[in-house]
């Protein structure tokens, strides 16, 4: 075991911020390459004539998931040291619905709005300002919804752990699902292309 490097003390907190910057450059670069600085390109996903959001997102998930799986099987990466966001079932369903609504109304999500600003989109800038406003509003709202905010907490868990399935089987299922999805995405795009 030698990774995650940071967790094994290869470099300190300050150096980790420089790493953050370099990783961010890669993140922003590929988001822009994929066309995710454009709100019209992003929301086309929801009008079914361009499913690039689905394709990019699931290719990235499958790539990183396979990498993590193999590296941990080879004994290079200690998966238990990788941070997992705790699961809160109902808040994450509601939060997802609200963010999805914000996505199709605003045209971006938080990460893609940063890229869109870098390419000169004014609506991306307004979206980012909206993020700041929404954060302030939520800070005001939180004391009143504290019960809802922390309900149905089941801690940090993964699909294989929660459903008691072999890790490799879930990975295989996700890969199959993604491949099926990519095939279906092509069919859907052709069906809806005329209406674009």
């Amino acid at each position: 075991m030698m990774a995650p490097f940071f967790k094994f003390g290869l470099f300190g907190d300050e150096a980790s911020l420089v790493v953050a910057f370099v990783i961010g450059i890669g993140f922003g670069f590929f988001l822009e390459r994929a066309g995710f600085a454009s709100a019209r390109k992003l929301v086309s996903q929801f009008y079914l004539n361009d499913l690039a959001v689905f394709k990019v997102m699931f290719t990235a998930i499958v790539t990183a998931m396979l990498g993590v799986t193999y590296l941990s099987w080879m004994g290079v990466l200690d998966l238990s040291q990788v941070y997992l966001v705790p699961t809160f079932v109902v808040p994450q369903i509601v939060g997802g619905l609200v963010l999805g609504a914000g996505f199709v109304i605003g045209g971006y999500c938080p990460g893609t709005s940063a890229v869109s600003i870098a390419t000169g989109k004014l609506d991306g800038l307004l979206f980012a300002l909206g993020l700041l406003g929404g954060t302030l509003a939520f800070a005001e709202l939180l004391p009143h919804i504290q019960g809802f905010f922390s309900m149905t907490s089941i801690g940090t868990t993964t699909i294989p752990v929660y459903f008691n399935l072999p890790y490799g089987l879930v990975v295989f299922a996700v890969v199959l699902m993604a491949l099926g999805g990519f095939y279906g995405a092509g069919l859907i795009e052709r069906a809806f292309a005329k209406r674009a």
Binding site: F11, G12, E14, A15, L17, V18, F21
Partner: peptide, 9 residues
């Protein structure tokens, strides 16, 4: 590695 590392690099 010190406190000015991130802003410098």
């Amino acid at each position: 590695g010190g406190p000015f590392t991130a802003v410098f690099w």
